[in-house]
Design a protein around this nucleic acid. Structure first.
Lengths: 192, 192, 192, 192
DNA sequence: CATGAATGAGGATTCATTCAT
DNA sequence: TATGAATGAATCCTCATTCAT
């Protein structure tokens, strides 16, 4: 319905505005009024869609996390071999960080910040399950090191965030060659 | 002199308070008044030691970064073999992140945030030079992959930040076994 | 509309409060909070109508200046003889200073103070044009001394400010007789 | 004695600094700390010479007023004819406003401001007595209009302040010709 | 649903003044 | 006498949130 669509649009516009402004200024330095302005909406309207600022950011976080994982697993199939599957997922994630850098930057900024509350963090992690399942398979068949998922993530996936932020900051440029090296490093660090 | 010492103490107390409060609340959510209170001084006193809030945080960042790298290279000697040298440095860094987790957490929070200005970031990086030199040696003698320092850092050092923050968040516990695995992953990802 | 009117009222209340408080304490000694209180609004509300304190005072200055000149030329007609015209204007101005002494006092205080910025000063002067035109006519027909408008103003108009302030300060009382003398002095000082 | 002289110097330096800073920023916008800095003195030292800020400004006002009147009557002699005496004094005052424009500007700024308290104002006026005496003589012998001293002052002396401030503001340049016209206007406005 | 106006609470910063030395 | 360090009390301004329409 037209009016429902308009509601969804407004909600999305608010989420987009939040991402963009938080990326540039951080959570506490982006006033609701600016979010409203950027979304072409009155400040009061935000409160029709979100309980308060914290809720808006939490919701945004979960939404972006969902987009992220949806993208990551788009071309992955649970029946793939472990090595192949990991490569597929890793490259999709790399792709996402490059092509959707606004989203990726937002997630990176959320990572080490007291900006997002714990429940939302937990919620955001859930979507990562297929990767954890893949690793489990890999551990059992002996292709992946039998170590904590946190370690696997820290060494094979998380470094991409660091590289993206370095690039965003203008410190260096992530070329395709870099990406190939990165993939090798990632795989080397977790392969059995 | 007693009065000079008192000044230094006050300055340090302010820096410590900043670290602790920013760790828990983030930059914009820690008022100068709270920093002052925690350091047992009047809010106005802060401005005797720092130009403004941004300066206080920048200075704190650089100070912590200096402590961090000083610790990291304490037992390292440029005449060491590359492999040995890397292990020494890596383990010191890991040690630091565990033992001085407040400092480490602060640095992690600064990483992906618009909280620190670029000049201070640049300043903070300088101290890392010995590690870059080590890598350079390793590349030349063929023990370290000939890839960008950003990649080397992203895969061998930065993951520790992720692990620390996960632990701080209560998500998991970094055991000695984990650390050994982590070191292996780090080394595997960068060794030639 | 009712709500528009309420807005205008609030704006005016703020301007009135500014005049009254600045008259008694000077620009820097009148806090926004007091202005707000006197206008029966929250301090934050001021910033809906004015950019900041400087803007509030500048705007107030221009508004009062407009009221002043509007009053001064109310009964004047450009077709009047020079002598008659000058008398008409002079007496309106004198009238204004006596009857609207709050406004006049505010303008006097603005005169020799760094309180008002230059652009606003320039803006405020514009409205005086009819008097300058009258003097121009007078100079051409030989009834007014052919001297700088600044001098004409300094001797024929400005003394009224001094007298008003002396009276406000309680130093003396401006009677009708005084006013008649003042007019004679003013005219004597500029007539050809 | 050397130490007494140093005290006097410091006191004078403080007064000079006050004049200069108040001229440029107004009373409330010139912090004690800046006055101290400009006088090469610690803020605390000010309080050895003056009770508080208000006292410093009042004292400065009276001091400048004294300098002003001392200058004004320097070449005047009570035995002079009224017309001659007035001309002498008027021209000395004009001279002062031009040559000692910092002092003159300070006095002008004090004129219409709640910056100076009443007792100090009264104190400052006292020194003007010789001019009032001259006018009294003039009134009795019929060369000066028998009108209030306030009027005489408003029309013959005060306009110079207006002209000085206009010049300081850059609005126009007071030439010798202007001064001659000014004197004529002044005299015309008060001569019987 | 949508809004613009309104605001109370709070935050960074300044400043006149004091005090230990 | 002289000071630099210290501070409590303001002051300007912002912002998340509410409310009448």
């Amino acid at each position: 319905m037209a009016t429902l669509q308009k509601s969804i649009d407004k909600r999305n516009a608010l989420i987009q505005a939040t991402i963009s402004l938080v990326n540039n200024n951080g959570f506490h330095a982006t006033p609701m009024s600016k979010i409203a302005k950027m979304a072409n909406v009155s400040p009061a309207t935000i409160y029709l869609y979100f309980e308060n600022k914290q809720d808006l950011v939490n919701t945004t976080y979960i939404a972006v996390k969902a987009i992220y994982t949806q993208y990551a697993f788009e071309t992955y199939d649970e029946k793939m071999e472990v090595v192949k599957g990991f490569e597929i997922i890793w490259k999709r994630i790399a792709d996402f960080k490059l092509k959707e850098s606004e989203y990726a930057q937002f997630l990176a900024q959320c990572d080490n910040t007291p900006m997002i509350d714990e429940p939302s963090r937990k919620e955001g992690i859930k979507h990562l399950q297929p990767l954890l399942d893949l690793w489990e398979r890999g551990k059992q068949e002996g292709t992946i090191k039998p170590i904590s998922d946190y370690l696997l993530y820290a060494y094979s996936i998380n470094p991409l965030s660091f590289l993206l932020m370095a690039q965003e900051r203008g410190a260096f440029k992530l070329t395709n060659e870099h990406l190939e090296h990165a993939y090798q490093a990632a795989w080397n660090s977790i392969k059995a």
